[in-house]
Amino acid sequence: MATGITESDVWTAADALLLEGARPTIERVRQKIGRGSPNTVSPHLETWFRALGARIKDPRAFAAPPEVPDPIAQAAAHFWDAALAAARAEQAQAYQERRDALEREAERHQALDEQLQQREAQLINRERDLQEGLKVATAQLAATEERLQAAEAQLRQRDKALAVAQESLADARSANKALLADADLARDRHTQALAALDARHAAHERRWLNELDTERSAVKRLQSRLEALQAASQQQADQSREALAEAQQQQRAAEQDAQLVRAQALADARQRDIESAVAAQTLQAVQSREADLMRRLAASTAQSDELLSQLKARDAQFGDLARRLLASQEAAPASTDKPPASSSPAP
């Protein structure tokens, strides 16, 4: 800091350097004084150079003072020092005030510079924001134009698709009419086939039931005959046992009669065995025939049920197709009541 350096200090140092034969410079004067800043020394050194010519013309400017008595010299030195101190203090105060004013001015200029820099930064940011906004607006405008062109293209395509759809709708109406006619014919054929199938199934069922009743009657007759044969066999067995008992009692007396009776009994037993085997075979055949008739009846019933379910499913399909065709016919006029403004009305 250069606080306290006065013009007199700078001039004294410059005079001393000049008397020593050195050129006074700011750095040499600062070294000679031992303190001070270049900004403080520079203006005082310039005033010293400006006054140097006039001082050179005065022969007493750099001459040594004349001999004076010590008391006078001391008093003069004391007054000189006092005056010099007062002048230095006054000059220092002036310089300090000037320096404070300059510092305040510098602070004010610095604040103004900061404000200007902030304002400039704000203007730059504002300009950048405006440029970015302009770019965004330009991009949005271009995108809007592209969307508008795409919408126009889609509208044209939609008009074409609407015309094609109207032609397809007309074709579909014709096809629907044909399908409805075919469905009516198929329904009539289906009804007739179903009636014929029901009649045929009823006839088969009656015939199979009649055959089953006939077979059952035959089985009952065979069972009755078998029971009669079994009763006769039982009766013959009882008679044989009685005859055998009588023959045992008369064994000694009628040996030949007993042998004849045993032979006849054996023959009757064989006959009964043969008749039992025939009756069992007949019953088995009748039961097999009855089981076969039942299987055939069940298979025919299942086939009839399957055919009936197929016919019902087909009838349901035809009914669903007819409902969809009717729904499409009802929806078609509703869709053509309010055609788009850019397209022609439906034919």
Results as ranks from 00 to 15, higher is better:
T144K: 12
A89K: 14
A14L: 03
E290V: 09
E145S: 05
R173H: 08
A331Y: 02
A101W: 07
S335K: 09
N176W: 02
N176C: 05
D292S: 15
A178S: 09
A334Y: 02
T25M: 05
A94M: 09
A61M: 02
R289K: 15
D171M: 09
A170S: 09
L308G: 14
A165E: 05
A302I: 03
H190E: 08
A106T: 06
D292M: 13
S8P: 00
D182I: 01
L311Y: 07
Q117M: 07
L19Q: 15
I56A: 10
A203Y: 04
L244I: 07
E97W: 02
Q131N: 08
A54H: 09
V29Y: 04
R104W: 04
T12Q: 13
R189N: 13
R314K: 14
R189E: 11
E246F: 09
A139G: 02
A86G: 11
P333N: 01
Q122M: 10
Q93C: 01
R314T: 13
V68H: 10
E90H: 09
G34F: 04
A170E: 11
R296V: 03
K57C: 03
K160M: 04
H78T: 13
E290Q: 15
L19C: 04
Q284V: 07
E205P: 00
R35S: 12
A13N: 06
R225W: 07
R60L: 10
A186G: 02
A89W: 01
E114D: 10
Q115I: 08
R323C: 02
E20Y: 00
T144D: 11
A82F: 05
V278W: 14
L222F: 02
P43G: 07
Y95L: 10
L212A: 13
R147H: 10
A16Y: 02
L308A: 13
E7F: 01
V278H: 15
Q192C: 02
S335N: 03
Q230R: 14
L169G: 12
T214N: 12
A106P: 00
S288Q: 15
L148Q: 10
V286I: 08
E97S: 13
Q115C: 03
A85C: 01
D182R: 12
F49I: 04
K57Q: 14
L212C: 06
K338G: 02
K57F: 03
W11N: 07
A263M: 12
G53M: 03
A172F: 07
E27Q: 09
N39I: 03
A247N: 10
R119D: 15
R324L: 08
G133S: 14
E107M: 08
S335W: 04
